[in-house]
């Protein structure tokens, strides 16, 4: 069986959609963070696949994916630090408790 562009793109878009769904529905901050990671990783797949199948002569997409991974790692580190701080002050990592400020 020939693996074409679509065999990679469709799972990647499904992955992104799962991330968006999880971001909106999850109550736990850590679960929301995992959903965000899912979205960022599906973008990396997109870049690498476009590069590999459509523009095999160059490396731009691969490099973008590498940098995007590094950026995602930085984001996770920061988010975890802030979630730990939230847990220290509020004794919970549930988004439903983070409603002191609204409207």
């Amino acid at each position: 069986m020939d693996l074409t562009l679509l065999y990679y793109l469709v799972p990647s878009i499904i992955m992104f959609a799962c991330g968006v769904y999880g971001f909106i529905t999850r109550k736990n901050l850590i679960a929301i963070l995992i959903s965000l990671e899912l979205m960022l990783n599906s973008i990396d797949i997109n870049f690498v696949v476009f590069n590999r199948f459509l523009f095999p002569g160059q490396m731009e997409g691969m490099f973008f994916a590498l940098f995007a991974i590094a950026i995602a790692a930085a984001e996770t580190a920061l988010a975890i630090a802030i979630v730990i701080n939230i847990f220290r002050v509020a004794k919970s990592v549930d988004v439903q408790n983070l409603t002191k400020m609204k409207f």
Partner: peptide, 19 residues
């Protein structure tokens, strides 16, 4: 507490938007 709540809201929307 407000500062941390604001940071969570800022960071998660910022990452979501960059995604």
């Amino acid at each position: 507490y407000e500062s941390h709540e604001a940071a969570v809201k800022y960071l998660f929307t910022a990452v979501f938007s960059s995604a």
